[in-house]
Design a protein around this nucleic acid. Structure first.
Ligand SMILES: [Zn+2]
Ligand SMILES: [Zn+2]
Ligand SMILES: [Zn+2]
Ligand SMILES: [Zn+2]
Lengths: 144, 144
DNA sequence: GGGCGTTATGTAATAATATGACATCACGCA
DNA sequence: TGCGTGATGTCATATTATTACATAACGCCC
């Protein structure tokens, strides 16, 4: 059994624990979608996930969008806004939020934490959600 | 003649100047789209712009997407990724990039500058474009 | 065990957003 | 004038996402 597979299983187990702790139910369908995201190791489009769920094409869009909504709400995945794609979250976030560095050459995404309150937030503005995405070339791709 | 109108005209004149300086041509169509964005004073959807361009519904999508591409390339407008909407840029950016604070209650957007190189950028990552959007409640809407 | 509310899923239809491909037009320039 | 280039017009289609309603699964009370 390869390393990736084992790692995926561990992450799924962690997700299970996190969900039951929060009173959320990580159903087989939702878990399967998270597994697909983890296996992909990068951003995946909703319709690609849909096709992977049911290769015969019988799964309908709401199936995948509902699962993705759940996962993003639960903090187990992020939506990459400028790609219309979804990404498994690689580490729980507390107060901090996700900041993504997306390589346009090789497609890899590096996820980091960023402070919930950016510098120079306008006086009185209450942030409920932030989108922090940087596009460019990763170190690997820059040198070639 | 009201203040808003005058201000829009001034901004259009500035845009004209900026374009000729850069060797870009702010054609009537492109200028009209920018004018619509300026008049709206906030994010507008592509198909709404399209409808405004030709209320009889004869304008086709590529018309508006091409104009928006031009305006965003020229730095005269921004795409608000998480809204699928477009926004006139209220001030030229040099090296700095746009950071948007979007009120989900009243729809107003506050645009600020942010440094092109965020803290903790991964070693060697070359950023070509960043998306910085914060959603929440503005000061006005927080107090009510 | 039988009703019953709640949550999750299945399914069909459609809406909303965006692009590709090719024709035509306008304009500067040899 | 003829040509090359950039801009626009137009038709078709692709991609992304939601609404609405039916069904299923499950716990809970009786
Ligand atoms: Zn994350
Ligand atoms: Zn790369
Ligand atoms: Zn701007
Ligand atoms: Zn507000």
């Amino acid at each position: 059994m390869g390393h990736t597979h084992t790692s995926t299983e561990m992450k799924l187990a962690k997700a299970d624990a996190l969900c039951s702790q929060k009173g959320l139910s990580l159903t087989p369908l939702r878990k399967r979608v998270l597994e697909l995201l983890l296996e992909a190791g990068g951003p995946v489009k909703a319709y690609d996930l849909l096709a992977a769920l049911k290769p015969d094409g019988t799964a309908q869009p709401p199936t995948i969008y509902r699962a993705l909504d759940f996962l993003t709400q639960a903090g187990l995945a992020h939506r990459v806004e400028a790609l219309n794609a979804y990404l498994a979250c690689v580490h729980g976030h507390g107060d901090e939020i996700a900041e993504l560095f997306i390589c346009e050459n090789c497609g890899t995404v590096r996820e980091q934490h960023a402070p919930a309150l950016p510098d120079h937030t306008p006086e009185g503005f209450e942030i409920s959600r932030s989108v922090l995405e940087h596009y460019g070339r990763c170190a690997q791709c820059s040198t070639t």
